[in-house]
Amino acid sequence: MVSRRRERLERGIKVRTDDVYALCSTKEMLYLVAPRLIPILVLLLLPLILPTYWQKVVIFTGVFALLSISWDFLYSFTGLVSLGQALFFGVGAYLAGSLNHYFDISPGLTIPISTIAGATLCTLFLLPALRLRGIYFAMITLVLPLIFLRIIEATAILGGTDGLTALAPLPGIWIELYLILGIMLVALFALRRLVNSDFGLVLRGIHDNDQAVKGAGINIYWYKAQALFIAALLGSFAGAYLTHVYMFVGLSAFALDFTVVPIAATVVGGMGTLGGSVLGAFILVPLSEVLRAFGPLRIVFYALLIVVFIILKPEGLFNYLQRKYREFERWVEV
């Protein structure tokens, strides 16, 4: 009797080394380039054929993709669980809003200024919390945006509960679209490169075993602070940008959505890949537009998706697809 079993093999290319390929044919080159090039091209061409409503959705998706990348970078590479992406977002948003509202600075300047200033501020706020681990850091990040929210509510500064309205818009939908998509792609590929550099190795070392990193004479808090700054940069940019797209900033900038959706996107897309976060955002955000009619049920849906993926498919979609792409299967006789 002949029984058969399924054998999984990894494709020969890109197995043995990380960066030396023997590229002998266009087929092999395509094999390597296609998974990067095709999504980029689709991303850049898609807005040209979409109706205005869906162009707005793409903008929104890009914002969440940035926040998701930021979350994944913090979580997977430094081990810091942030339950406060809304902090980064909100600080960036309010900075841009107040710069434009009180000092009448144009969006071309407010966005870069509030990106950098916002990231600096967030890093300073969280700096003392960096020595805390696990749930304690998570608690601080959960609490901080709420503090800001309540303070703004209680003191009625920065527009109070009404927010700041009639802010300057960005010049045109095309700039809005390609600015966010461009920044998102740059952030994605820059961070993917960064985490594989020696700097990234140190961060991953801190995630694995911080004692050993200390023992190696490296100040782990300095590295954590740098990682935090990078993550905050992305979040603050997203906040500042969306403020000018909406021409409004209000208490909703500290809303829980900006925390939950990035986590959901990353968990669904696959943690530790950065690309997975973007994939997740581009699945979840448009999907939630489709489900808009259901109102609060969207958050239920997101939340349940997080739970289901965390227990049933912790690797996420991106890792799964990557594995399938690199492997081939065949039946062999035993």
């Binding site: 958050i299 239920v300 939340a303 349940l304 739970v307």
Partner: peptide
């Protein structure tokens, strides 16, 4: 943390 927080929101 993530799972219980998500469950709470759900």
């Amino acid at each position: 943390i993530i799972a219980t927080f998500a469950l709470a929101l759900a």
